[in-house]
Nucleic acid binder design. Structure first.
Lengths: 255, 255
DNA sequence: GAACACCGGTCGGCAACGCCGACCACCAGG
DNA sequence: CCTGGTGGTCGGCGTTGCCGACCGGTGTTC
């Protein structure tokens, strides 16, 4: 494969840099942060600004991400086939389970949330579409790891960050869990990401049985798990049924 | 201002092209659609793909937008100061009004929705963050037009698209409405975008009194408007109060 | 089944394009 | 008033990316 276009790669790096730092960044910060000459960085920033990908605070002259990115991100969701077909199933699942539902796809070294159905009560919740979750510490992630060798390979050999005392941080333990996931056909994560939160996830496949994403139910450990500490079987069944339904939906129109 | 970087502008055009067309596009379609040589378009697409901004369907070879855009769009929201400060006010406004609340900013020739609070009931609603609304046919848009001469200038001289029979399509009528908005301090749009839907919006200013966005309450015309067909005064008061609160919040930390 | 049209992808040569570093205007602090 | 910082500009050099011809595969047509 021939090389990438230099200016484009650099522009992407600038956008990621701006996305990473919480606050706005100045021209010099951007330039030194990526090892570019000031003039070079300025040329790229100027173009990105004209296109709406970057905005400049007129007061301080510092740069931040632009609104066009939000619009394009929304367009990504609009054409996302998996998400479109999963919408109604995810809604039903949330209703039946009485819990939050996430739909995630593999992206870089994490799980990107492409759909999020609020728990059906009146509590205040923030939408997490577009956010990333760790592969090794979530039910969504472990499902994708179990069925996607490439993802497992890219994750490397740990040890990984521990979010709680129950986070799996060692490769051997994670691989054992993945084997279990493949055997059972579903993954759980009880207090591995946040204290008090438990999740169940199952795989979504396309028409050729390739893993394309995962669906997950997440909620308070008291409601997701039974008195024995294990995930309630009825919930597992709901999640697996939903995953199968979405997978079937993805393949149905093929012939 | 010196010129833009050619390859970057072209890449942006490709992304917009992919965002516009509902379906996936092939290499040749992209190339001819923008008047580029196939090799050129391929080089840009290849780089965008490496960076995650576009994805390629391995089966058909066609291109679509990539997941990285969703992630960056979310990052845009994370650093968006207006949105961050308005979150709690918008929530309260939705609760008090019992209706949907939108928060919009000017972007290109439309209003970009940066926040959306669902109507506080159990009905099924889709999130519209990241979508665009027309300037001339929404309450949000008319507020921004009334207070931002640049936006009004860019909109040109119409006539604009009519979404319903009550849509304002002529420049003279729109300018008259804008004058009224400035006089009253708020804008309404009753069945100008969709049949049966009415909205009220008010301006949000930053510390230097520059218009930076608008907040809007939207709902069924039967609940938003009173028996006389005009918007309920209590609702107008709520929206204006919320807008003032957000504006004050934006300016408060200045000194 | 062969001819065709079209697909996505590659490659090399030419020159345009964008990179670089010096420079400018401005501002804050000493 | 100088110094060190900012964002921004400019022109010359040479790297870079653009272009159009070409390749191998696919599906359509007859």
């Amino acid at each position: 494969m021939p090389g990438a276009i230099q200016s484009l790669s650099r522009a992407a790096a600038i956008l990621r840099l701006l996305a990473g730092g919480e606050r706005r960044l100045g021209l010099s910060e951007v330039a030194t942060g990526l090892g570019l000459a000031k003039g070079t960085a300025h040329g790229i920033l100027r173009t990105l600004q004209q296109e709406g990908f970057v905005e400049q605070d007129p007061e301080s002259g510092k740069y931040q991400l632009g609104a066009e990115l939000l619009r394009l991100g929304q367009s990504y969701l609009d054409v996302h086939e998996l998400r479109a077909r999963a919408l109604v199933w995810a809604d039903d699942l949330a209703r039946a389970a009485g819990e939050t539902v996430y739909l995630g796809v593999l992206h870089q070294r994490g799980v990107l949330v492409v759909h999020h159905v609020f728990r059906p009560d009146d509590s205040r919740q923030v939408l997490e579409v577009g956010s990333m979750q760790p592969l090794h510490a979530t039910a969504l992630g472990k499902v994708l790891l179990a069925y996607d060798p490439v993802a497992r390979g890219e994750l490397g050999g740990g040890p990984w960050e521990a979010f709680t005392a129950r986070t799996v941080t060692e490769p051997a333990a994670l691989d054992a869990q993945c084997a279990l996931v493949r055997e059972r056909g579903w993954a759980d994560a009880v207090e591995e990401t946040w204290e008090g939160v438990a999740s169940v996830a199952a795989l979504i496949q396309d028409r050729r049985r390739n893993p394309v994403g995962a669906v997950c139910v997440s909620g308070a450990v008291e409601t997701v798990c039974g008195p024995d500490g294990a995930v309630r079987p009825a919930l597992v069944a709901s999640v697996r049924t939903a995953a199968r339904a979405i997978s079937r939906d993805l393949g149905a129109h093929r012939f």
